[in-house]
């Protein structure tokens, strides 16, 4: 048995202009939409300005420097990072850091894990694990001496890390990783 198709009478449901052309214009809604559009574009411009300044990473305001009070370590890093985007932590050693032709550098485990340390330049002579991090040893005799740690953060979020010469003061830093 075939059932009848469901039907509904055709009514004048689309709004008319001057009662003669069915347009269904909703000017009130459009005015509100224009206001909304303006807000959206303002927000967009603000985002771009933040990005240009570096508030979203990779710019002037993202760069940060932190040093220990005894000047054994000065570190340049970016306080705002982006996921999977390469960046570099530069560690400058001060005069108090070199002992017997070597310099030792401790980095906390979060540098390797959350911040995704890719490689350490130059190649450390030895690396040793312990104290919740890695201690690298480099051969060094004269200043200035610099070590670069290439990062590629894997997890968005706020991460803390510590870095320094074992036995002396450590530098602590907070890095915000954006998605």
């Amino acid at each position: 048995m075939a059932t009848e198709p469901m039907t509904n009478p055709v009514e004048d449901t689309v709004a008319k202009v001057d009662g003669y052309v069915a347009v269904g214009e909703d000017l009130e809604f459009q005015r509100r939409w224009w206001r909304f559009e303006r807000v959206v574009w303002t927000v967009f411009v603000l985002i771009l300005v933040c990005d240009l300044l570096g508030l979203l990473g990779r710019g002037y305001l993202a760069k940060a420097q932190s040093k220990t009070s005894d000047q054994s370590v000065t570190m340049d890093y970016e306080r705002i990072e982006r996921t999977n985007t390469p960046s570099i932590i530069t560690v400058n050693f001060g005069p108090g850091a070199i002992h017997g032709g070597e310099v030792r550098l401790f980095v906390s485990g979060s540098v390797v894990k959350e911040l995704g340390a890719q490689r350490v330049v130059p190649q450390p002579k030895t690396s040793e694990i312990g104290d919740g991090g890695v201690t690298y040893t480099f051969e060094a005799n004269r200043l200035p001496a610099t070590v670069d740690i290439a990062l590629s953060p894997s997890l968005p979020g706020i991460h803390h890390f510590t870095l320094g010469v074992p036995g002396s003061e450590m530098v602590q830093a907070k890095v915000t990783v954006l998605p």
Partner: peptide, 10 residues
């Protein structure tokens, strides 16, 4: 989708 808008009328 927005709404249809009248540009010119009479």
């Amino acid at each position: 989708d927005g709404t249809p808008l009248i540009l010119l009328e009479r």
